[in-house]
Design a protein around this nucleic acid. Structure first.
Lengths: 359, 359
DNA sequence: GTTGATTGGGAAAGCGCATTCCCGTTGGGA
DNA sequence: TCCCAACGGGAATGCGCTTTCCCAATCAAC
């Protein structure tokens, strides 16, 4: 038995398909209550489920929201996805998921796929990047997005405007003040921490990472501190761990070199551009026998919920991730004239991982 | 400018829509190469993107996979979702996401929505439950699933057959040996741990939770140990934390009561039915000043990746979550005659949180 | 050279629904 | 009582695509 159609319902109820449609799928015209009742009963008895594809075709809109993330298992994206999902439910739409591992090529494909499905709006949560060799793909991505917008689609981007987007109509940007927050974090750390700083960044060219690095350096400079060395590693836990292995050796070496004096060399403060990298770093240092914050201070960024139970508690910058997802999705639902820019607030949150060791 | 259509492409290329369709959208019949070339060029110059809704309508299949989870931000579900997503990409399909908070009513709605969108298959990752008052909703869910299957849909369920499902055609069950693994865990713990056991479960009626509780009790019994007390709390971190607050008091009280003797009362071993509950419990105990594993041993279930960096390292049962997602999705893609049952393997993994304190 | 098989393209019929347009009824105002 | 407006329902069209069916042309075989 194939799924029953509107026509079958209409026939059973003894009315025309038009009337059945009006009764069942919220039209402006409301048929008489007796007829409506009959139709509804017929639909019920047949177990009628409207064919969303046909509906979408007819009214050219799909009730779909496309969500683009790097990796749904990354808690950062998972949190945003939850916000998107919540808001989607309010809008009575469904979320279509695409993961891209951060590649512009994959992002372009995802946008095309969403466009093909006539998604009402697209939320891009994954940060864009500008690596060498990505130029072409980025251009294509921008072209694809422009086309999507010209066709009436709405695009909400988290964190950063799309590079090279020419059409402004239909673009919504949820601006995350990465740079400012990183600067504030640097300022606060500089006040308490007198040693050197090292920045553990993602791949060069990744906007989110670059912004946070730039902000942190600026904060250091404003506090009259030297520019920090920058390490580039993968934007995930492994990247942090890998960096941590090297870092541990370095810390130990520098200690060994100054064994003659009564004071150990000044403690390093490591700023990882996101929490999972910070955790990777911390894990590597710990397994090398170093203690945090005694042997090195560590700060992250994002304030991932699952990591709140990590010890020592991680100093970080709180970002309202779910809220970001909600805001992006909401804004994309209400077509705005011209490009819309939304702000969200973050909050520097110092915890135990950057505390002063008690001497 | 609206998105261009197949007809427009055909017109520009000077062929019929039928031919254009055959060229662009993989049909069995391959038009001549010169014509194909012309069509492809036309499509390219117009930036043609096939309308997936129309395609879906015409060939009555959508290229969509519906995924049902309780909460996408829960790392357990996020990991499964990643597996689903990976496999979906291989199948060249997209993932439609629905979150239900575990409510049968919401699950039914999600299934209906997927059916409306003519999803090719549905993966249900969230465990079903059988609480009082859920009976009606569960029946409706089963009915909805049955209908979906009768209409040719494929359903893959993780962990547990759907209660009350009558149609067997189109059902795939990825069987997670929760009970056996919990029993093994209990056996291994019983060998090392001589004190009392307490089980921290989810809400009564939640299958996953109930299975693990039952298995653990069986394991204890087989080892000749007393049945463990069972606590029921929310199936997430807060539930664990809440239970932990009470537990901390209890442990302290029992200590105070036996201050006269030289030995402190035997250490408790707490089995939480999932990792996030275990973490919540651990956090609560810790903030009450208790140490793990010295003051209480804790074990979880699932082996959530993000929690690997938690200290003390959590004893748990490893589940190949991504693999589970992949397997479920793969199996749902290949219509099976009758009900298909798949097995996945878990692995008891003892770590520091249940180690013997050094006396 | 004729016939039958095969190929390659087009015309047309849906897929299931929304919606416009049309027509028959009814109700109210003059 | 008559006319016009408003209403309530149905027929028909089209959304964009796939696919069946049909037809003309080409080819091989006899």
């Amino acid at each position: 038995m194939a799924a029953s159609t509107l026509t079958e319902v209409a026939k059973l109820a003894g009315v025309s398909p038009a009337t059945a449609s009006r009764v069942l799928n919220g039209s402006a015209r409301k048929p008489g209550s007796d007829i409506a009742e009959r139709v509804r009963k017929a639909a019920d008895s047949l177990g009628y489920i409207p064919n969303a594809q046909a509906q979408g075709l007819a009214r050219s809109s799909s009730g779909l929201i496309g969500l683009i993330v790097h990796d749904i298992a990354d808690p950062y994206f998972a949190a945003i996805a939850r916000g998107v999902q919540e808001e989607a439910r309010l809008q009575e739409r469904m979320v279509l998921l695409a993961t891209t591992e951060g590649g512009p090529k994959e992002e372009k494909d995802a946008v095309a796929a969403f466009a093909a499905r006539r998604a009402d709006s697209i939320v891009i949560a994954g940060s864009r990047s500008k690596k060498d060799g990505d130029d072409d793909a980025n251009r294509e991505l921008a072209a694809e997005l422009d086309r999507y917008c010209r066709n009436g689609g709405q695009v909400a981007v988290v964190g950063h405007p799309v590079v090279g987007a020419t059409a402004l109509e239909g673009y919504h940007v949820v601006n995350v003040p990465n740079e400012e927050l990183a600067a504030t974090l640097a300022a606060e750390l500089a006040r308490k921490h007198k040693g050197e700083f090292v920045i553990l960044g993602g791949p060069a060219g990744l906007f989110t990472s670059d912004d946070r690095i730039r902000g942190f350096q600026r904060g250091l400079a404003d506090a009259g501190r030297r520019e920090a060395e920058v390490l580039h590693h993968a934007f995930n836990r492994s990247g942090g761990y890998e960096a941590g292995v090297a870092m541990a050796q370095r810390i130990k070496a520098s200690r060994a070199g100054s064994q003659n004096g009564p004071y150990s060399p000044p403690r390093l403060c490591i700023f990882a551009v996101n929490d999972v990298m910070a955790i990777g770093m911390a894990a590597a240092l710990r397994s090398a026998g170093l203690r945090i914050p005694q042997d090195a201070a560590i700060a992250g960024f994002d304030d991932i919920e699952t990591l709140r139970d990590f010890r020592p508690e991680l100093s970080t910058v709180h970002l309202p991730l779910e809220e970001i997802g909600r805001v992006a999705t909401r804004s994309a639902a209400s077509p705005h004239h011209g490009q819309e820019i939304l702000q969200v607030q973050g909050q520097v949150t110092l915890r135990h991982s950057t505390e002063q060791p008690i001497l």
